[in-house]
Computed example of a mutant assay.
Amino acid sequence: MWRKKTAWLVLLGLAIFIKIFSLFPDAVERYYASGFYPVISKVQRILFGWLPFSVGDIFYALIIIWLIRTLYRTIRRVVKKQTNKKYWLQALAQLGFIVLVVYVAFNLLWGMNYNRRGVAYQLGLKVERYSKEDLIHVMQQVVVRLNALDSPSRVNREGLLRKRNLFNGATAAYDQLARKEGQFTYSFSSVKPSLYSYLGNYLGYTGYYNPFSGEAQVNTTVPLFVQPFTTCHEIGHQLGYAKENEANFAGYLSARSSQDALFRYSVYFDLYSYSRYYLYAQDSLAAKLLDAQLPPGIKTDYRELREFVKKYRNPIEEVIDHLYGQYLKANNQPGGKLTYNEVVAWLVAYYKKFGKEAI
């Protein structure tokens, strides 16, 4: 009995400490994001990165099996009228204990990064509201990049069918970036194809990070030109950039540093989509004028992506989208799923500080 009480006290103490500590972004940045987390994440990648399959995906599968089994047993006991007040109190206590374990483990292993200062602080960027003119200036540079990369990015696109080329390419991109910005140093690679890639097409995800195993998983069934930026985005999560706009910006900085034209094309392709979302809402004519400057090949890629998304659209995806949006809001991202698009504000801030050649 005393062991259970001790475990409860330890977990409650850790949970309270985590909650209070998270209120101080400077401390989180210094002691957790730049201190404890890099060590624990490297240990995770050393332990599991060498395995050819995703340990985290297997872990999730076991959890789902356990939940189904527990639900089945509970329903059977209810039907057979084998439950009483004591049973439900014990079940509630067990559930509370599990929630505490998950909360503490999640935050210690990665989740505290949601409360750090982050990449804007590291790069000295002033992220603020931007004008339509600022947005158009940035998008014009993105269009220039896309036009220049259209042909080179198609030379060896099928090479990404070998996933090792994709993952090695993303690692090399971060190596290039780290030569200028040391905080993006990525060692002990642990990026793998998701075991649930086809399921991801129906649930609407292209990749995800597993904080319990330190692995980055990529949906390798989506169009090839999407995968490089997704991979760089997930490595951004591994480096401790938890918020989606930050992971997108880390993915942008790394992919644009790549010597592979397809990686650079992939990131500008996504950035144009994110930017166009906001510009079209303000000035649809300006957005269409920029669209007209894109070469036929890029327009073909956009059509392919739209058809791919349309093919797998289903009611469950809408539910998952809503739940995931709520998860993001609960983790210091009030914009929900639009947080991904907020990378545009970071891009404008980067443009203002370093000029158009930096885009």
Results as ranks from 00 to 15, higher is better:
S257K: 07
Q217T: 03
I64W: 08
Y31F: 13
K132N: 10
K353L: 04
L305V: 14
T300S: 10
R129S: 04
L146R: 01
T300A: 13
K329G: 04
G297N: 03
P296Y: 04
I68Y: 11
P295D: 04
Q82N: 01
L67G: 03
A247F: 09
S254H: 03
M112V: 00
W8K: 15
A105K: 01
S151T: 15
L92E: 01
Y186Q: 14
Y268H: 15
Q140A: 14
E215M: 07
G111Q: 02
V343R: 10
S284N: 15
N248M: 08
F59Y: 11
D270Q: 09
T339K: 02
I98Q: 00
N332E: 04
L239S: 03
R77L: 13
D57G: 11
F188C: 05
A148Q: 12
L89P: 09
Y241P: 02
L166F: 08
Y121N: 08
G297W: 03
F36R: 04
L203V: 11
S275H: 11
K132T: 12
L289N: 14
G159F: 13
L271A: 07
D301S: 15
I320D: 02
Y351N: 06
L294K: 10
H137I: 08
Y340N: 07
V348D: 09
I98P: 04
V348W: 00
N84V: 12
A178M: 12
N219S: 05
N115Y: 15
K243C: 01
I46A: 09
T339W: 00
Q122S: 10
S187P: 10
L166R: 05
N331V: 00
R157P: 00
V39F: 15
L161N: 07
Y302I: 09
